[in-house]
Amino acid sequence: MTEGRLGMVVCPMLEDEAIYNLKNDHEDKRIYLVKGAYNTTIIPKLKQHNVPYTMIDEHTVLNGDYDHDGYTVIIWTMFMGLHEDIDMLRMEVMNQIVKIHSAVDTILLYYGRCGRGLDTICDWAYEMVPTPVCIFRNKDGTICDDCICIPVGGTERYLKLLRKYPGRFYFTPAMASNFEGFLMSMELFNGLDVKNDDIMKIILDLAGYTTVMRVQTGNGDQEHFDENIKRFTDKYNLECTRLEDGWATNDLADLNYDNAKSTMTRWLNEGKKERVIPNAE
């Protein structure tokens, strides 16, 4: 039985994976969602998937003034707009780690490389804070590239997908429910006002984007998935196609969550800070 405090630092583009992990982990646990400005999309999804949680203010968490016996998960959601500048993203994630590390026993970053902005974040954390810090990795131990790489099972499968279906927007439920934030995360649109429809249509046309590929992960906001995609395609005069079954998988969500829990257990029991190496089998 797991004991300890797992801190989840969650990008909105991977909050569906965080909810999936909590829903499918049948161990007894307390789940706390830290109050903040970036909980807009995660709260209705937690409710839609019947994941019980308690809202808590950050001051209470950092002071330890809450019931944290047994297994406890504490969720911090981050600002999607950090992806506009990878240096800012790296700095804010570092700041978050420094701020919360003493309040938890292991930190799991629901992030990938994000334009290489977080390539060395775990090496930095190993030297700078006593708490183990994990990030989403492929089965071979390399860091996942981005928020599409993870739901399709890793970098190798992602590259195969890009070769088979180039020049498309790949929309998971998380992206469909926050498509303006998703566009802000793309290098193509850095510095642009994604709310200016005329400019966005021009850029999309010049870049050759004509199609949205619907990627059904089974997670996130299923109730409004197709509606959210239609809002996007109607707004920018795009077509929609569906990715065939067999591509989307929760393998990496399972792998990384399980390894974060194992890392935490080993840290608490043996004092070994190194992450548990993912099992590629």
Rank of each mutant, 00 (worst) to 15 (best):
G81T: 13
V73R: 01
I75R: 01
A103H: 00
I74M: 02
S102E: 01
S102I: 00
D85C: 09
T77L: 06
K99F: 01
M88Q: 15
V98D: 11
M88F: 13
I86C: 13
E92R: 15
A103L: 01
I100F: 00
W76K: 02
D69C: 08
I100L: 00
E92W: 10
T72I: 03
M91S: 10
N95E: 04
M78K: 03
H68W: 13
G70P: 09
A103F: 00
T72H: 09
I100C: 00
V73N: 02
G81D: 15
N95C: 04
E92F: 12
V93N: 08
Y71S: 08
L82R: 10
E84K: 13
I97T: 03
M78N: 10
N95A: 07
M94T: 11
V73S: 02
G81P: 14
H83A: 08
H101T: 06
G81N: 15
I75M: 08
Y71R: 13
D87G: 12
D85Q: 05
V93D: 05
V98F: 11
G70W: 04
L82F: 14
M88N: 14
T72A: 05
I86H: 14
H68F: 14
I75K: 00
Y71W: 15
R90V: 02
E84A: 10
S102N: 06
E92A: 10
L82D: 09
M94V: 11
T72G: 01
N95V: 04
T77A: 07
I97P: 08
E84F: 02
V98I: 14
M80Y: 10
I97C: 04
H68M: 07
V73T: 13
H101M: 06
F79R: 15
G70L: 07
T77I: 06
D85E: 12
M94K: 15
A103I: 01
K99H: 07
I97Y: 05
T77K: 04
D85T: 08
I100H: 00
F79I: 08
R90P: 00
T72R: 01
V73E: 05
W76Q: 03
W76M: 03
M94W: 13
E84H: 08
G70M: 06
T72V: 05
H101S: 04
M88T: 15
G81W: 07
D69L: 12
I74A: 02
M94S: 11
L89A: 07
I97H: 01
